[in-house]
Design a protein around this nucleic acid. Structure first.
Lengths: 191, 191, 191, 191
DNA sequence: AATGAATGAGTTTTCATTCAT
DNA sequence: GATGAATGAAAACTCATTCAT
């Protein structure tokens, strides 16, 4: 059992544990101790690899965004038409993985900290811009005002996600349906 | 002069101080000490009147919702037509008061805690239901599917607010404009 | 038992405990916990009254200097002639109180931290200037170069104290004797 | 190329790094990690060669004393007369190398730890005795009480060094001048 | 010879909360 | 009605030290 090259393993374990712990606690009041314990190591090691709590959290949020990005990419891969691309984007936003407790918690943390923490804010901006760009691109052949429609659709998605994520008894499918219906309206599909 | 009837005064001062402090700190990491100091009293008194930190926070969120409700009521008062009512509702959501630092912070706290804290979640539900009901009522004469359109509009408003509140360089007016344009689209105004 | 006005009491207790603890541990590696325990209170209260470890230490050093100043004043009070004044000053430097374990430790802390900590350095400067000024004043009628002689005498005192304080088997009286002999030499008493 | 005989190299590197780090940090709060990093090796290796932090520090202090001893020896080498020998001794104490930040820090550490740490205390005693012996020897043909005068001169040197080392704006030359003037007075040179 | 991995024990500091007055 | 006093519990973070490789 060689014990070299543990750093990426440990870091990954900590990030995963962070998200899981946020999900379990249902809140951002998660201690480094809890995270480290779940990741199977001492708090000292967690600090050793990340330098501090903030950076662990930041990395967890980056991970959430990476996961989301991967979801988008894989959804777009099979989309052949502009409309399919738009639908794929929207579907990715409401994929089951987005509603895992940890993921929801991490998103809420992201929002709550964005107002204060510049780096977190930056992270959020990146997500919003990327989503907007993707939507704009997909809507270009379908809409007369792709930029504005993308903006609206992006905000709608955020709002729907927020509501679906926080509602206990709602099915994410419903949120997805609403978003897709909005897409119809915007592209005049069902006029 | 016996100091009778201080309770409502103290409670109001604490709630106001809580919101102000959340705004000043830009985060939910606000201590009872900070709040009590800003409200001009001891922490012991703060506890005496509220029982605990959670309840102070909860009351602050209730206040935010009350303020928002008042904004809505006063906006609706001068609206004579259904369309004016819908516009008034939407405008109220993007009123300047909603973008005061403390208000934004309180909303983010609301979202972040709603996942965990049942009472906070309940509060959020009340807000969402009331907004939906108001919107549905206003849209009834204007839309063929008032309920569904209200739901969508509600989510859109939430998403737009979230983005406008967290963006530093954006004008809330833009968010309002997008929401109003969505209203146009839904009611076929600009078809 | 009224429980008001504890602040000065607690602060004094903490300062005293700090010096005692430095003496007991014989080093500056003293924790707030140890100090608080000796002072009969929780660490939280220690922090409450002082704000942090550094400030507790700083205050302890100030106390040492205050004590020394008091020693000087009381010694000068009974000195009638310039020579008596000079002798009183020197004697005060080697008073038994200066050799209490805690006092020695605090002085060493003072020296060790003066290189880094600006406030500590400032404190040390004040002590040195005051001693110089006092010595200069006393030497004026006795020496042809009171300023220079005071400077030398001051340094000699520091060096003698350092050696006497750190030596375990030496009598402070010897150090005093050496300093007084230097005074003789400077003032030509024994020429 | 087998890496044999690395021990002295590593030890020397660590000792040098310790002094440099004490100088850089300006305090004795230096971690083994910092030292090892500066010396270009792992903390584990530092422990392997020295057994513990205390011993690294102790060795650093020994090095300071060795350096000082070398300075004295080389200064004495060119001194032909007793007086020149005395002056050489004194000059060596205020050589520029004695005022390098790391050296100053190490001396302060020496003083601060001497009260507690027996081995450090022993080290300090050796230094003091050697200086006294050297001074006594040099003063024998010049003074009527060489032993006492050497003792006084030794203490004066310590005190002057302490003051010069801690003062930021003072020139070590001044301290040297004062010490030499004291030598004049003791030997009746300028009477 | 050398090191990355790992941790236990300890440190400062914070804070909600309680209580006697 | 009001508060200063006081603390327990827990948080983040540090660091000397050990060990397997």
């Amino acid at each position: 059992m060689p014990k070299v090259g543990m750093e990426p393993v440990r870091r990954a374990a900590l990030v995963e544990a962070t998200i899981a712990e946020i999900g379990a606690a249902g809140s951002l009041d998660v201690t480094v101790g809890q995270i480290a314990k779940r990741a199977g190591m001492s708090t000292a090691l967690a600090h050793h690899y990340f330098g501090g709590k903030d950076q662990i959290f930041l990395e967890a949020m980056r991970q959430i965004l990476r996961d989301f990005g991967a979801e988008v990419v894989s959804a777009l891969k099979v989309a052949r038409t502009p409309r399919a691309r738009a639908e794929a984007l929207i579907s990715a936003c409401f994929a089951p993985s987005s509603f895992a407790p940890g993921t929801v918690g991490a998103w809420m943390t992201l929002y709550a900290q964005a107002a204060t923490h510049p780096e977190t804010h930056h992270l959020l901006l990146i997500y919003q811009r990327r989503l907007s760009a993707n939507l704009t691109h997909a809507l270009r052949p379908l809409s007369v005002a792709p930029r504005a429609d993308a903006e609206m659709l992006g905000a709608l998605i955020d709002g729907l996600y927020l509501r679906a994520a926080l509602a206990r008894d709602t099915d994410p499918k419903d949120a997805l349906a609403v978003a897709l219906r909005a897409l119809d309206t915007l592209t005049g599909e069902r006029a």
